[in-house]
Design a protein around this nucleic acid. Structure first.
Lengths: 132, 132
DNA sequence: ATAATATATCACTATATTGTGATAAAGGAA
DNA sequence: TTCCTTTATCACAATATAGTGATATATTAT
């Protein structure tokens, strides 16, 4: 009932998750590609994807070891499509979304095989070690 | 930028606040009327109204000591109207919203003068004392 | 003036959420 | 098989949020 509505608006009430759906609006991506674009750890990205999926906003397709995520195209619950209709109104001139869009192009050019969850996780750890 | 979108979806990602906007869709109400319907304390209701107002979803009109709240009818920021357009899709058969709707009729019949913030706050405190 | 009321705001506790490292499960390559 | 990868999940720390009582402000009545 109300829970569907609240679960979905809650899913869209976090900056990272809005960035993710904004990217997935343009093309499907796997977890490690999203890590590269967002600059976040694998468990973080995976958790956010779980929340968006649970809300019926995105869907997965497994191919080998990769999980490709894209916008949900079907009625998954009572409100998912209503909220998906809001996504085209996301501000295209937002600095965050613009930066993400540029990174998206790079990642698409490189291709899935050239993104590495392990490398990025290591890099993130080194960076936080140097900072702290 | 993105903040407008997130602030608004966050405002709608809480059960109490969705109940409030659902009520204000039907007619304007003051804080103490909302207290009666929701069965919550005055500071709680007031805080939620502040969050909804800050998101551009509702607006206030002061008359005497009363603050009457209603749905926002103007463009308050970049996304408020997009989200307000979602409200008619709220599930009318939700048990919570139905119960609120019945209470709304009672409160409307009684009139503003017969709701009392002080009385309800006292009642709530007594109830929690008996429980704890 | 004083008293009573409606509302907003502050400080606090309890709970929820975010980001993270470690671990586990599962597919593909050597 | 063993090794390397991607992804999901768990446990934890840091932060954010919800609900509340007390307090402060403002309006109205006496």
């Amino acid at each position: 009932m109300l829970n569907d509505f609240i679960r979905t608006s809650k899913a869209l009430s976090d900056e990272t998750r809005v960035r993710i759906v904004s990217l997935l609006m343009r093309n499907e991506l796997c977890v490690c590609q999203l890590m590269e674009i967002l600059g976040m750890g694998q468990s973080t990205v995976s958790k956010h994807l779980g929340i968006l999926r649970n809300a019926g906003l995105i869907e997965v397709e497994k191919r080998g070891t990769w999980s490709f995520y894209g916008l949900c195209r079907d009625k998954a619950n009572r409100h998912n499509l209503d909220f998906i209709r809001l996504l085209p109104f996301l501000p295209k001139d937002d600095p965050f979304l613009q930066k993400d869009g540029k990174k998206l192009k790079e990642v698409n050019k490189k291709g899935v095989a050239f993104c590495s969850a392990i490398t990025l996780n290591r890099r993130l750890r080194e960076r936080s070690n140097n900072a702290g």
